[in-house]
Design a protein around this nucleic acid. Structure first.
Lengths: 243, 243
DNA sequence: ATTTAATGTGTCGTAAGTACATATTTACTA
DNA sequence: TAGTAAATATGTACTTACGACACATTAAAT
């Protein structure tokens, strides 16, 4: 039996009961601003966690695929549509939710703070990922795992562009990589590596809002995958692992 | 509402009902024998899938962590203890289970067929992964994803040794890699790469059961992680992604 | 003794990773 | 308008990893 479950709380949380496991999704919504990686959080609505922030989540509905749930949550809470989402991990320890037995599947999302978001809900706030020490539930753990996954994915797949406006300079791109990976990169080597990936389209345009020599502007050439649910095995990838 | 859900079926499957999502785990149990990657399957017990095989799974109990469930399933069905398990993905499409709404979290497991398994259940059978075309439920999809994950993990982490007996030769190890990755590898380059990883302990022993020049025997030096639930981010890994 | 079938290295060309320096362009300001 | 500051843009040399490839060695079987 869940630890801190009392009858009063069951009534308060009518969607939870003693006899079933509830299924939820939580969204780790990453954004990038002012050279910092951010995550969108909401004030926790549970007494146990007053003052703490939490991820955006909801119970999975009986009539929706689990993959649809995080899209719905993002749409409902932020108005965002057509975002990049990837499943990270499913968390289901006994004590993770004080109101009952809830298993949650975490998704992370990459969005462009500046151009995409209209915050409809004033309890939502962007937080610097690096400054976060504690969150409600096990959400700090979920955040850590999501960041870990983001770091793994970001050099292998052309997904990082979801965090940037359509047009960006190589400096902006490098700053973003540095914010995500938490390391400084050599500019010349970084550019060689990016050039080699063939992800960028040279727009033949220049920055015009910088107080120094403007850089060239690029846009992402590659189509990012928006629905990661059903992937194909890539034989070539497997091969490159060894020989 | 689930597609093919009828009252009769609900009665037959008393653990499922109209009003809640059920949570299960499925185990993709990999083994290795005769130069082939195998997976342990059980005959499906559902009418809809008579004649088809399925993964070993069970509903998650109300009083166990989700991570504990696959360990329990393995213990109950095969007697296996202390195995390597890793969570792969959570599948939750509406129509995936004919008897109701069931969301399942897939784990893959690596075990040594020869020395560990006492099949207690005579409906269990090892199947060649390469020969599997169709499984019950969405289990073929789950198997594909698990194999994909195994292929990704197997060069990065010293987990492959869970599929081998304690002592093994480099040839056996290479054969196993080839079975998993589905490619042939150059022996010299393979050995260089493995040597470079510093995963092996030279036992100063020789094979003695082979009809040709015997090779040296090795054992795994590295401790495999048995409980992958809570990983730490590795700063050095992140750095190596860029430069 | 010869054959067979594997083990156990080494080399060389190529590609990628890493450390590092100089010239160039624009905005700013004095 | 000339000089300065700050960033862009690019190249080279070193080292390490990858990939294709060949030959000598060892033990078992005949």
């Amino acid at each position: 039996m869940p630890r801190s479950l009392k009858t009063a709380e069951i009534e308060k949380n009518s969607h939870l009961d003693y006899f079933n496991i509830a299924v939820s999704v939580d969204c780790v919504i990453f954004g990038y601003d002012n050279k910092e990686l951010k995550v969108l959080l909401i004030k926790s609505d549970l007494e146990e966690f007053t003052g703490l922030w939490s991820l955006l989540g909801d119970l999975v509905r009986l009539d929706e695929d689990i993959e649809s749930a995080p899209y719905r949550v993002l749409k409902e809470r932020t108005g965002l549509d057509d975002v990049y989402l990837d499943q990270v991990y499913t968390f289901g320890d006994l004590g993770r939710h004080p109101s009952g037995r809830v298993i949650t599947t975490a998704y992370y999302s990459l969005i462009d703070i500046k151009h995409q978001l209209k915050l409809t809900h004033n309890e939502l706030h962007w937080h610097k990922v690096n400054d976060i020490r504690k969150l409600a539930f096990d959400h700090k753990n979920i955040l850590d795992r999501s960041l870990e996954r983001l770091r793994e994915q970001v050099m292998e797949h052309p997904i990082i562009f979801n965090l940037l406006p359509e047009k960006f300079s190589l400096r902006e791109l490098q700053d973003l990589y540095q914010a995500i990976l938490g390391v400084n990169l050599d500019r010349r080597n970084f550019r060689k590596k990016i050039a080699h990936k063939d992800w960028l389209l040279d727009l033949d345009e220049m920055e015009n809002d910088v107080p120094h020599r403007p850089g060239k502007l690029y846009k992402a050439k590659t189509q990012f995958r928006k629905n990661p649910g059903k992937r194909k095995t890539n034989r070539a990838e497997a091969r490159s692992l060894i020989d």
